[in-house]
Computed example of a mutant assay.
Amino acid sequence: MNPFPAEMIGGPPHSGKSVLVYALSQAQVAHYVLRACPDGEGDWSQETSKDQVRLSRQKGQFSDEFVEGVRHDIERRHLPLLVDVGGKPTLEQEQIVRACTHAVLLSATPEGLAEWRERAERCGLILIAELQSVLQGEDRIDEAT
Score class of each variant (00 low, 15 high):
Asn2His: 03
Pro3Asp: 04
Pro3Ile: 07
Pro3Ser: 00
Ile9His: 03
Gly11Tyr: 01
Gly11Glu: 00
Gly11Ile: 01
Pro12Thr: 12
Ser15Pro: 03
Gly16Trp: 06
Lys17Met: 05
Ser18Cys: 09
Val19Tyr: 13
Val21Ile: 10
Ala27Asp: 11
Ala27Asn: 03
Gln28His: 09
Ala30His: 15
Ala30Tyr: 08
His31Gly: 02
Tyr32Glu: 09
Tyr32Phe: 12
Val33Asp: 11
Leu34Met: 15
Arg35Cys: 13
Ala36Ile: 03
Cys37Asp: 11
Cys37Pro: 02
Asp39Tyr: 08
Asp43Val: 07
Trp44Cys: 13
Thr48Asn: 00
Ser49Trp: 02
Ser49Val: 13
Asp51Ile: 05
Leu55Ser: 07
Ser56Ala: 13
Arg57Pro: 01
Gln58Phe: 12
Gln58Gly: 03
Lys59Gln: 10
Gly60Pro: 13
Phe62Gly: 15
Asp64Met: 14
Glu65Asn: 13
Val67Trp: 05
Val67Thr: 11
Val67Gln: 05
Gly69Lys: 06
Asp73Leu: 13
Asp73Val: 09
Ile74Gly: 05
Glu75Phe: 06
Glu75Ile: 14
Arg77Glu: 05
Leu79Ile: 00
Pro80Arg: 11
Asp84Phe: 11
Val85Gly: 08
Gly86Lys: 15
Gly86Thr: 13
Pro89Ser: 02
Thr90Pro: 12
Leu91Asp: 11
Leu91Tyr: 04
Gln93Asp: 05
Gln93Ala: 13
Gln93Glu: 14
Glu94Tyr: 12
Ile96Met: 03
Val97Met: 09
Arg98Phe: 05
Ala99Ser: 09
Cys100Met: 00
Ala103Glu: 01
Leu105Cys: 03
Leu106Ser: 03
Leu106Asp: 00
Ser107His: 01
Ala108His: 11
Thr109Ala: 04
Glu111Phe: 14
Leu113Lys: 07
Leu113Asp: 07
Ala114Leu: 07
Glu115Met: 11
Trp116Thr: 02
Arg117Gln: 14
Arg117Gly: 03
Glu121Ser: 08
Glu130Pro: 05
Asp139Trp: 12
Arg140Asp: 00
Ile141Val: 14
Asp142Trp: 13
Glu143Gln: 08
Thr145Asp: 12
